[in-house]
Amino acid sequence: MEIKWYLFLSIALFCIGMIGALTRRNSIIVFMCIELMLNSVNLLLIAFSKMHMATVNAFGTSMATSAQIFVFFIMIVAAAEVTVGLAIIVMMYRNTHSIDINFLNRLKN
């Protein structure tokens, strides 16, 4: 399959995620949208790594490996972020009985 289809899919996923993050007020959905964006990037990275499988980098190994390592990084960071983020959302719900992100604008003024 040509690489452009992967690109289209990944751009579509990223845009969906971004629009969701911008428009929805439910923090869990915003959260999910952020995950979607991260994963669309992962998809892109994997696609390119497959494409460059044969290219050799400065160390004499395949270029693909670095992209794949990057993907793992992103997954780990995302996982860490989820734990913190979900904890915040839980605390927020406990205190305000709402998970509306616009509810937390107390810093204003």
């Binding site: 993050a21 911008l22 428009t23 992100i101 616009n102 937390l104 604008n105 107390r106 810093l107 204003k108």
Partner: peptide, 14 residues
């Protein structure tokens, strides 16, 4: 600009 609306911050970021 500092409205406190998370959505608007994200929009500005984008």
């Amino acid at each position: 600009l500092q409205s406190g609306q998370v959505g608007s911050y994200i929009l500005l970021m984008v």
